[in-house]
Amino acid sequence: MDHSVAFIYAHPDDESFLSAGLIRELADEHVNPVLLLATKGDAGNKNGYVSHLSHDQLASVREKEMEHAAEILGISVIEHLGFPDGKLTQVDENLFVGAIVNFINKYQPKVIFTFPEDGCNFHPDHMTISKMTTTAVLSGKCPTVQKLYYCMSNTLAADGHHPTITIDVEKHWPMKVRALQAHESQILAIKRFFGDLQSFPENRRYESFVLKWNKGLLWTSIEEKTIFDDLTR
């Protein structure tokens, strides 16, 4: 296929938590997954061998972990905006949105994925990257973009939204485990969410996404077999 799909998240490991199965499927279909991260994760939870590291040192570790995960997932491009981890609400909005617009126009994706407005877990960084990405897409400055998806969340479900696209992770579980384990500095947080990674967690079986914006229309209710349905050249 002659287009890329962009994933725009806050931290290294968000991509593996939320969309490892989808990213790997896209890569296997010869689509070009590109990843933009607002931070390098320099204020992330630290355990074991990284517990003594400074923010700058942890950022370096997490960049390398992200590169390893990207190889497993089939991500072709990783860019970090390098904004302060845990402080995205303090970044100038014009600067932030402009950086996202520049990334989008550089790689010209037709489809973008990001966090929902509630950040899935109300993490301020997650909520901020959702807001900034949505603002960039709706600004009219990203002409290649035709669809914006949000990761499914409990708040979206409570508001009556249903997944537009769902990936069954069970068949991808060994791959997803390798991608998660690549983020070794965050392994305690990963195991709190997914369990010991030895057995398949049925409660984490699906990666689900809701179509937020479709060629100028918000919350269009359509059925899709793939994210490429109804795209124009």
Rank of each mutant, 00 (worst) to 15 (best):
W219E: 11
M175S: 04
Q198W: 06
T155F: 14
D168F: 07
F209R: 03
V31F: 14
L218T: 05
A59K: 01
E117M: 12
L26W: 13
W219M: 11
F113I: 01
L35A: 07
W213I: 13
T133K: 03
D28R: 11
P174C: 07
D168R: 01
G160E: 13
A157L: 15
E63G: 02
G119A: 06
F122T: 07
T144P: 00
E223P: 00
T134G: 03
N94V: 12
L37C: 10
L188W: 09
G195C: 09
D118S: 02
I75H: 00
A38R: 04
Q146R: 01
K176M: 13
F115D: 05
E117G: 08
I23M: 12
P163K: 07
V169L: 08
N214H: 15
I100A: 03
K176I: 14
A189F: 01
I112M: 00
V101W: 08
V97N: 01
L138C: 09
S4C: 04
E170P: 07
D168W: 03
A70L: 01
R24I: 12
R204S: 13
S76W: 05
N102I: 03
L138G: 02
E63D: 11
M132E: 09
E202Q: 11
K64N: 09
H162S: 14
A157M: 13
G21S: 11
E223R: 01
V91I: 10
D125E: 06
K40F: 06
R24M: 10
N47L: 13
F113G: 00
H172G: 04
S54D: 10
F122W: 12
P163N: 08
T164N: 11
A59S: 11
I104Y: 04
H123D: 13
P12F: 05
A158M: 15
G48R: 05
H52M: 07
D196W: 08
A43R: 13
E63Y: 05
F96S: 07
M175Q: 04
D92F: 02
R205L: 08
G41R: 05
D56L: 14
G48C: 09
D229M: 03
R62C: 05
S76E: 15
M1S: 15
D2E: 11
N214M: 07
L36R: 10
S16N: 00
F96M: 11
V61R: 00
A27F: 13
M132R: 15
R192P: 02
E15M: 05
F194E: 04
F193Y: 14
S130N: 10
V177K: 03
T114A: 06
L36Y: 09
D229A: 05
K40S: 10
K131M: 13
